[in-house]
């Protein structure tokens, strides 16, 4: 479960500070896709960065299961990310020198978790490649894959270490409607199958049927009228 409590994030803006996230509290439960929507510049991505422990909020708590990520040092936050958090970026952000399968295996190499962990990740990588329908493309590099295929690999990479929280940033922004719909459906299915607490940022609700709830952000503040869509 992802639980944000009274989170406020500001950035320096000349002599004053710009409020990016203003006292936001929300919960993304396990096995559900929690959509965060809102216009450009509303603070959606800042909220995701806070939830992903990539930036520490000025005030508030960020609970990933029972760990308050807002209180962690950068080193501890990195460890939390490689063990408990999966991130799907707006762009696939795949490493050009790695094959599709290696994009997943790299998750076992980010820390010092040992041989058993590595073997587990290797096994899950094959399962996930199958789950995203890319087993036949396992040995291709990013340049040999389509945009949709790359985003599928990015989703598989985010799940290969079995995180409890999945944070997804505008996964369909670079895809056409059909491919976007496929990706959203894949995220929805994997979230429900694996019981992951998924927080998904999107600026349009064309694929809203893949979201379980939606919270709207405006000027850094969350509306309190979460809508249950499915």
């Amino acid at each position: 479960m992802i639980n944000l409590q009274d989170v406020t994030l500001t950035f320096p803006d000349g002599d004053s500070r710009l409020i990016a996230v203003d006292d936001v509290s929300l919960t993304a439960p396990d096995g559900k896709v929690t959509g965060i929507t809102g216009p450009s510049g509303s603070g959606k991505s800042s909220l995701l960065a806070v939830a992903a422990t990539l930036i520490r909020p000025d005030t508030g708590h960020v609970w990933i299961d029972d760990v308050d990520a807002a209180a962690l040092t950068p080193t501890q936050a990195a460890a939390l990310r490689r063990e408990q958090i999966g991130i799907v970026f707006q762009q696939p952000n795949l490493l050009p020198s790695l094959t599709a399968r290696e994009q997943l295996l790299v998750m076992a190499e980010l820390g010092d978790r040992g041989r058993r962990h590595r073997m587990t990740v290797h096994r899950r990588a094959d399962d996930l490649l199958d789950a995203v329908g890319l087993t036949a493309h396992a040995h291709k590099r990013p340049g040999q894959l389509s945009g949709g295929q790359r985003q599928r690999i990015a989703i598989a990479r985010a799940l290969v270490h079995a995180p409890s929280a999945l944070l997804v940033d505008e996964p369909t922004s670079a895809l056409d409607h059909q491919r976007g719909s496929d990706i959203m459906g894949l995220i929805h299915r994997l979230t429900h199958e694996r019981g992951t607490a998924t927080m998904l940022i999107t600026h349009d609700l064309a694929h809203a049927d893949a979201l379980d709830t939606v919270t709207t952000i405006n000027d850094g503040r969350a509306s309190h009228s979460d809508t249950v869509l499915a």
Binding site: A52, R81, R82, E83, F89, M107, L110, G111, D112
Partner: peptide, 15 residues
């Protein structure tokens, strides 16, 4: 850029 991605995914600076 790749290094930033690896760090975002949780890579330790040591690794």
């Amino acid at each position: 850029g790749d290094i930033a991605v690896l760090k975002a995914l949780g890579a330790s600076t040591g690794s």
